[in-house]
Design a protein around this nucleic acid. Structure first.
Lengths: 233, 233
DNA sequence: CAAACTTAGTGTATTTTTTACACTTGCAAT
DNA sequence: ATTGCAAGTGTAAAAAATACACTAAGTTTG
């Protein structure tokens, strides 16, 4: 019978692709990892080894919080990555040598995905993250390990979920307009949508309902404000 | 720098849900695991720890072959399972005690899915599998670890892939009838489909093409035989 | 206060896709 | 010649997807 410990499991990690929406563009949360040689810099998705007594989902939440301070984010597992050569770059090895007790252990990682409103979360770097920041997904730099690959697959999955209306509304403020939703979709899917058809479809889903309030202070015709229709969920 | 070894990784396993189609029903490949106490019997999906120098996909293929003799099967990863209490049953522990050098290590498993023609594969038990057999998915017994859960999720995924016509044709013989395809779909999805509508849809997909041959020796009107349309892939 | 600007809001016709549904055909066995 | 059996076929109706253009209601500017 295994006992509860705080020991890390040297072979399994989690990585989190947390996407942030700022009403303008889609960003992903990256960390800058401390390298022993301070001249060098390495960017990565937040990720670390799991503890021996925690589940994968719990590990993902904990690691995200440890590195970036963010908590209360719904993370969904989407794929495990286990190529034995996924860690091979010289910088990757240098990083592991300074931060892991068993740096040459073979690690398979379980990747998680989330999407949040950037305004709701102000990341603060801690642990081996020297810096945390939101990066526009169109201009992601070269990342540690196989993190560019993980990120691309996360983005594919995120878009697929949007197309099938499985996610997205949670990104909106308490009160929002149909224009807001459409813009959200357009930014995530990276393409324009027809206004009338989009509205028809969204309203048919019955996931939102109109309030009797309208926008104020906008320099154009004020839009009706909607809320999530929780009865349907 | 890690060197190539044959060492097992004590923390990561793969499990394979291999579904077999026999033109009548959908089966899943199970093993009977050797228990130290020969009175006891335990059924499971084929699965084992990965080696430290192999990838996940490769591990799944190897493990399947080691336990059942089956090779050349296309296995797709579908989910990692890592609940720290996924191994808790007394029988599970007993099994691990006799077959693993580090029986109380915490193991996360990466689950794989495949679908094959049963006729093409004759499983033969080896390694710690005492017996290997095809089991109708409607009458699956209680399995080791969290394998019932893994199996159910595999089946959900398989059906989802069928609904979206992402898989299935590879199950058919070289020459087949539209009736064969329909029966395949009906068995996998476990429901009846309308003949005329099904044909329309399949033919529109253009994944198959008619030959100028017909069935012979059947005690009813012979059907036109079709082949896969490889140009479309 | 009129004009300009900006996004909200709305309807229809067309095409495509999905669904429901029943009878005749060709072979083999008797 | 009859029977049993799956093959094969068409159409109408409903639902979903697509394309498309103008008016409305605010704010700002001159």
């Amino acid at each position: 019978m295994s006992q509860a410990t705080q020991d890390v499991n040297p072979n399994v990690s989690v990585d989190c692709a947390v996407f942030g929406f700022d009403n303008e563009k889609l960003n992903v949360l990256l960390i800058e990892q401390k390298m022993s040689d301070k001249e060098k810099v390495q960017f990565a998705l937040p990720g670390d080894l799991i503890l021996d007594d925690e589940g994968l989902d719990g590990a993902a939440s904990r690691v995200l919080k440890d590195l970036t301070g963010l908590s209360g984010i719904f993370l969904r597992q989407f794929k495990a990555f286990g190529d034995p050569n996924r860690v091979s770059d010289i910088k990757d090895l240098e990083f592991l040598n300074s931060y892991r007790s068993n740096p040459q252990a073979r690690v398979i990682t379980v990747a998680y995905l989330a999407l949040v409103k950037m305004d709701d979360f102000k990341p603060e770097a801690s642990s081996f993250a020297e810096n945390v920041f939101w990066q526009d997904v169109h201009t992601v730099p070269s990342l540690a390990f196989d993190h560019n690959k993980i990120l691309n697959q996360a983005l594919d999955r995120l878009r697929d979920d949007f197309v099938n209306h499985r996610t997205g509304f949670e990104l909106l403020p308490e009160l929002f307009t149909l224009g807001h939703i459409q813009k959200l979709y357009e930014i995530i899917l990276d393409k324009e949508l027809d206004k009338r058809n989009f509205r028809k479809k969204i309203l048919k889903e019955k996931l939102v309902k109109a309030t009797n309030q309208k926008q104020t202070g906008v320099l154009h015709k004020p839009a009706v404000l909607y809320t999530l229709n929780h009865e349907v969920l």
